Simulated scan of single mutants.
Amino acid sequence: MKFILFSAFCVVMAAAMPYDIVEDEDGQQFYAVPVSREKRQTQWGVNQAGAGISHTGNLFDNNNHRVDGTASAAKNWGSHGLRPDQVGGRLDYNHKPSGSSAFVGADNMRGYGTDVNAGVKYNIHQSKNLGVDLSGQYGRHYGGPGGTRDLGSSVFLNANGRF
Rank of each mutant, 00 (worst) to 15 (best):
P145N: 14
F156H: 09
D61C: 08
A32I: 06
I21M: 12
S72L: 14
R162A: 13
S98V: 06
M17F: 11
G99S: 08
Q29R: 14
D24W: 02
R162W: 04
K39M: 14
V120D: 05
D26A: 12
Q41D: 12
A16T: 07
P84I: 07
A159V: 12
S135L: 06
Y93E: 10
P84G: 15
D107A: 13
T70R: 07
G147L: 02
N123Q: 15
L91E: 03
G136W: 00
E23F: 02
R149G: 00
Q43C: 05
E25F: 01
V132N: 07
R110D: 13
N94Y: 08
K39C: 10
C10P: 00
Q126F: 03
N58I: 13
A51Y: 00
A32C: 10
S135R: 06
Y112C: 01
V46G: 03
G69L: 06
G99W: 00
S54I: 00
S154K: 09
V22A: 12
A71P: 02
H141P: 04
A73D: 00
Q43W: 01
S154N: 12
V46L: 06
Q126V: 04
Y142P: 06
N58M: 14
F3N: 14
A159F: 05
R110P: 00
H80N: 15
D85Q: 08
I4T: 14
S98C: 07
F9D: 09
G146K: 03
A49K: 12
G69S: 10
N117M: 11
Y93Q: 08
D61L: 11
Y122K: 05
G50K: 02
V120H: 02
P18M: 11
H80A: 15
Y31G: 13
N64R: 09
R37M: 14
V11E: 12
N62V: 09
F163G: 10
N108C: 08
N160T: 10
N117H: 07
G89L: 06
G50Q: 06
H80I: 07
D26M: 07
G111L: 03
M17Q: 15
R149D: 00
G89R: 03
T56R: 02
F3M: 14
Q28I: 05
N160K: 12
D61K: 13
H65M: 13
A16S: 13
N47A: 14
R90W: 02
R37Q: 14
P34T: 12
G69N: 05
K75R: 11
A14N: 10
D26C: 05
V155I: 15
G78D: 15
T70F: 01
N129W: 03
Q48I: 13
N76Y: 04
Y31C: 14
H55S: 08
R66F: 01
H65T: 13
G69A: 15
S135G: 10
A8W: 01
P34L: 13
G161T: 12
A14Y: 04
S54G: 05
G45P: 00
S98I: 04
T148L: 01
G147Y: 01
N117V: 13
L157F: 04
H65W: 09
R110Q: 12
N129E: 11
V87S: 04
N123H: 03
D115C: 02
P84T: 10
A51I: 05
R66Q: 15
T70D: 10
R83H: 07
Y112P: 01
Q86R: 10
G52M: 02
G69R: 01
G131K: 12
V67L: 15
A74G: 11
D20F: 03
E38W: 02
V67T: 05
G99E: 08
A106T: 05
Y122V: 14
S101Y: 04
N76E: 11
G89P: 03
